[in-house]
Design a protein around this nucleic acid. Structure first.
Lengths: 154, 154
DNA sequence: CAGTTGTTTCAGGTCATACTGAAATCATGC
DNA sequence: GCATGATTTCAGTATGACCTGAAACAACTG
């Protein structure tokens, strides 16, 4: 089913947002469309057709989504075609994975201690303190988040 | 003062990290150098010389840092040259500004309500709930952060 | 006011990457 | 096993970003 005007506008809005953050346009368009398409499960061919993208682009960018954990494949017995859909809890997963980046920042700060400047060393140490703080706070924050979101959907 | 081996390695580490997140290499190198250079205040010419970058690149990328609030200019009376340094609390500011992105995500989710799919509408609504959650949690988290970091530096 | 040094601007070269289109590959149904 | 259609791969193109180098500009010194 092709996109109507409102859907097209929304896909564009999502694509613009994520493109601003550095994502490939096609990557972001696919994400936007998978948020609102009907049914939620779509084949690569359908996505390519609906968004006017080449099959190659859809294949590549979908693989990226799958690797990032945003999208999952759905096997349908008796049907040759694979379907893809936004993974339940996809948004939650994105936030949870931020912890890895926080840890990487902490590593970066610790590596800086070997070249710690005498003048204003807090340029480096503040980063370490910040990373430590978030490394401590993030897990309980994630727990509160899941508790809150489940409550909403119950 | 040119970089010694350890400093060069660290600048490279910082540059690689931020380049992975999509930053320009020169932007990230300048950031890394401003974290550990001595003294903390540097002129554009010094930075260009030390990092082996052109004056134009340093001018452009430094302006970006200033606009993002990471770096500030230091006026020195009686000296023709402007100096730049990593802003105190620069890392804190980065985290605090995340609230804007959270709000933007919320706007995106709300815009999606006009095209809410019948099948699995939580693809959109979960994003909104998530954004609302973080919009509520972020300010108190920031307060705890500042309290904690001040305690450490006291 | 001229000279010197630091900064900004900008045209051009270089490089990385997104995307396409087509060929190859794969998976399934008959 | 063959035919069909979906998916993957890949060479080629194009778009855009980064960076440089040079010229214009600004700010201070003597």
């Amino acid at each position: 089913m092709p996109l109507d005007d409102a859907q097209h506008e929304y896909v564009d809005k999502v694509a613009t947002f994520f493109a601003m953050l550095g994502s490939a346009r096609a990557w972001a368009e696919i994400l936007g469309w998978l948020m609102i398409c009907e049914p939620a499960e779509q084949t690569q061919a359908q996505i390519a057709e609906d968004l006017g993208l080449s099959a190659g682009t859809v294949s590549t960018q979908l693989r990226s989504h799958v690797q990032l954990g945003m999208v999952e494949q759905v096997r349908v017995r008796g049907d040759r075609t694979q379907r893809y859909r936004l993974r339940p809890g996809a948004w939650y997963g994105v936030m949870a994975s931020e912890l890895e980046r926080i840890r990487a920042l902490g590593d970066l700060a610790r590596a800086g201690e070997t070249v710690l400047p005498r003048d204003r060393p807090e340029r480096v140490t503040e980063l370490g303190d910040l990373a430590d703080f978030f490394a401590r706070e993030w897990p309980p924050l994630m727990e509160r988040m899941t508790a809150e979101l489940e409550k909403g959907s119950a």
